[in-house]
């Protein structure tokens, strides 16, 4: 049962909410109780902008059961503009369209549904920036 875990993580998953250290300004995602840089416990919630670039990526063909319906899918290491590197799925993009260094932005998408009658879990993925006019 994933309900308690996802309930606790909802601000992280929906809004990329991490922490910023009030002493040294170090950003952390996921949020930290203690700064990994200066060991300060003065950590303030911080919502990341969601803008970043692709550091590297791969295509997943073999995965755990809850993601079986989605294969093949792309997973990338994303360098957020605040200087934090995170792992996330890519969406709205084909593997031959992805490049290292490609600018991306965070979107909320469906992670998976817990069977036919369980909850649906949502969270961050990244896609090429939608800037069009």
């Amino acid at each position: 049962m994933d309900i308690p875990r996802y309930w606790r993580l909802k601000d992280q998953r929906y809004r990329l909410q991490g922490t910023v250290c009030e002493d040294c300004g170090h950003y952390s995602f996921p949020p930290r109780l203690v700064c990994p840089n200066c060991k300060s416990k003065r950590q303030k919630p911080f919502a990341f902008s969601g803008k970043g670039t692709v550091f590297s990526f791969t295509t997943i063909y073999q995965t755990i059961e809850r993601y079986q319906d989605q294969v093949p899918y792309l997973v990338a290491l994303i360098d957020l503009e605040e200087g934090v590197r995170i792992t996330a799925q890519l969406t709205d993009v084909d593997s031959d369209e992805v490049e290292i260094g490609m600018p991306v932005e965070m979107v909320v998408r469906k992670f998976y549904a817990d069977g036919d009658n369980g909850p649906i879990f949502y969270g961050y993925k990244f896609r090429p920036i939608a800037t069009g006019s």
Binding site: D69, V107, I120, Y122, K125
Partner: peptide
């Protein structure tokens, strides 16, 4: 809609 999209997203 893409496979990870619904009315909420």
């Amino acid at each position: 809609p893409g496979p990870d999209e619904d009315t909420i997203t």
